[in-house]
Amino acid sequence: MKFFNNRWFLLVLRLALGGVFLYAGATKVTNPQAFADSIATFKMLPPQLLNIVALGLPPFEILLGLMLISGWKARAASMALAGLSIVFGLALGQALMRGLVVDCGCFGSGEPSTLKTWASFGQAFLLFAGSIWVFRSASNGLKQDAT
């Protein structure tokens, strides 16, 4: 447990998490149409919202990634990323439960596959866990600053 609270581990975790979201956003921002097609395979959103999400989500991931990497408002950024990871997990989970073969679209578009969907589901869980840990450490840092 001590290792997971080590400041170097927390720094690496924060940078890695920020890097993952920065990369994820950058791969999607260049081709929003492909990302919209990926989201459409989940059959969760109406057509009126698909393109708005495809245009807005990648820059959101990039900004949050930059916030985490820079350390500016890391607590808020990690909270948002934990929320996003929950949304991704729910989207992937419902697709798996409904037997939909989806293209995650997490890091650019690809061929839809059930195996990749399971892998992405696990990935979302890890990102959620990482975000919560960064959020926890940032919260502790704030408490220490206050005392």
């Binding site: 820059p59 900004l63 808020a76 948002a80």
Partner: peptide, 18 residues
């Protein structure tokens, strides 16, 4: 204040995307 900031970043991101 964190939630407000997240809302602000999300709105900015959508504007940038558009």
């Amino acid at each position: 204040s964190d939630l407000m900031l997240i809302w602000l970043v999300a709105t900015t991101a959508l504007c940038v995307g558009l």
